[in-house]
Computed example of a mutant assay.
Amino acid sequence: MKCLSTKATSIKPSGIRKFFDLASTMEGVISLGVGEPDFATPWHICENAIHYMSTGHTHYTANRGLLELREEICKFHKEHYNQVYDPENEVIVTIGGSEAIDLCMRALLNPGDEVIVLDPNYVAYAPSVILSDGVVVPLKLKEENDFKILPEDLKKVITPKTKAMIINYPSNPTGGVMTKEDYAKIIDIIKESGIYVISDEIYAELSFDQPFASLAQFDEIKSQIIVVNGFSKAYAMTGWRLGYCMANKELSSVMNKIHQYVIMSAPVMSQYAGIEAIKNGYDDVLMMKEDYLKRRNFLVNRLNRMGLKTNMPHGTFYVFCNIQSTGLDSETFCERLLQEQKVACVPGNAFGDSGEGYVRISYAYSIDHIKEAIVRLEQFLKDLEN
């Protein structure tokens, strides 16, 4: 239709939702596709929200969010990650991390500005760039490098038009991480180029094998870094839609203006839940993290034993499984696995061209579901050989 936006109509639907929606129409499907914890939000977090709702706290908050929540966010990041931000001027509470990414793009981009997006990457990044009139420039990551950013590769994709780069470590979909030593190798490139880096750290609390590292820990480039985080993954609060972004005062002020007009403020009951989560919920995070670790170890071991080469993910709750040995492309593999064995996962090409030949399997599901899915997957591979 001529009346519709060409930008909006040109964007492909999410490859994640496509297979989830298809699986939801079939009976007996085990879905390992969506990145949502199978745990319910811990009750003490829900109870705090209920208490404030029952006592009449049901109104707008400040645009940036409740000051107490912003103060607790800054305190948490200083204690756990050595990231220092001002709760009054450098933090905005958002509708999930997704709104924060959108605010970054709208605040930073002019038409034609280039944004480096890792490939493979989370499915929402490229559309957010396009919708803000930016140009997506993929930075291809390789399995043999554990899907890390290498300085020589980063240099090649930076041009005079580069405005920003979006990174996500621990990574959805690969489970890859960047250590502080890895980041140190690209600091000079970021500083000299003057680009902004939007660092989506939504899985920071789900780092398994080494301490979480962030570009915001490097003082020499901190003003160029925008940290995005939230409560969905670590605290099992996906439905509460609560995130936040932290950036230098000038940029944060511009982002807050956009937030004012589009959102006003994040839901107040979610913010009170967030206060309780960040103050008293870390034991819950550690409990869930321990369970994810057991699932990860089981899943990676079984996938490799059945001949599907899979790097050990050092964070998140995903494995990025190499299925090239089957001779099938990602879409065909996932379609046939769903139709023939009723197991749903996500084709790697949903996350960019470099994801072709892989599938993303989430282990944010019970170990019983994972074990049954593995039995079905093994049968699927045997049927392929015959």
Rank of each mutant, 00 (worst) to 15 (best):
S232R: 04
D219S: 11
F212V: 06
I221W: 05
I187L: 09
S199F: 12
K156F: 08
F212M: 06
V227N: 01
S171Q: 14
N172G: 06
I167K: 02
P211F: 01
S171H: 14
I186Q: 02
A234H: 00
Y183T: 14
K222P: 14
S223P: 00
E201F: 10
K222M: 10
I186M: 07
Y203S: 00
N229P: 07
V177K: 04
K191H: 14
L206W: 12
T162D: 14
S214Y: 04
K156N: 04
E181T: 06
I186K: 00
K156Q: 11
T159Y: 06
A213Q: 05
I198Q: 03
D188H: 15
I186L: 02
G175S: 12
K155W: 05
A184E: 14
Y235K: 04
K222N: 12
Q210N: 08
Q217W: 10
A204H: 01
A236S: 10
F231Q: 00
P170A: 10
V157T: 10
D200F: 07
N168P: 05
Y169S: 00
I221H: 02
K191A: 12
E201H: 05
S193Q: 02
V177D: 01
V157H: 09
E192N: 12
K161S: 06
A204C: 08
D188N: 15
I198Y: 05
P160W: 15
A234Y: 04
P170T: 03
F231V: 00
Y235H: 13
T179D: 08
I158K: 00
K185Y: 12
D153K: 04
I189Q: 04
Q224T: 07
V227L: 06
K156V: 03
V227C: 02
D188P: 12
I158E: 01
A216Y: 14
L206I: 12
D182K: 02
I225E: 11
T159D: 06
K233H: 13
K180Y: 11
I225A: 07
Y183C: 05
S171L: 09
A164S: 11
N229S: 12
G175Y: 03
A213D: 07
E201T: 02
Y196H: 01
S214G: 01
T162E: 12
K163P: 15
K185Q: 15
M165A: 08
Y235A: 09
K163Q: 15
I167A: 00
N229D: 12
K156Y: 09
V157M: 11
K233V: 08
I195V: 08
K155S: 02
P160K: 12
F208W: 13
I221P: 13
E181L: 10
M165E: 08
A216C: 13
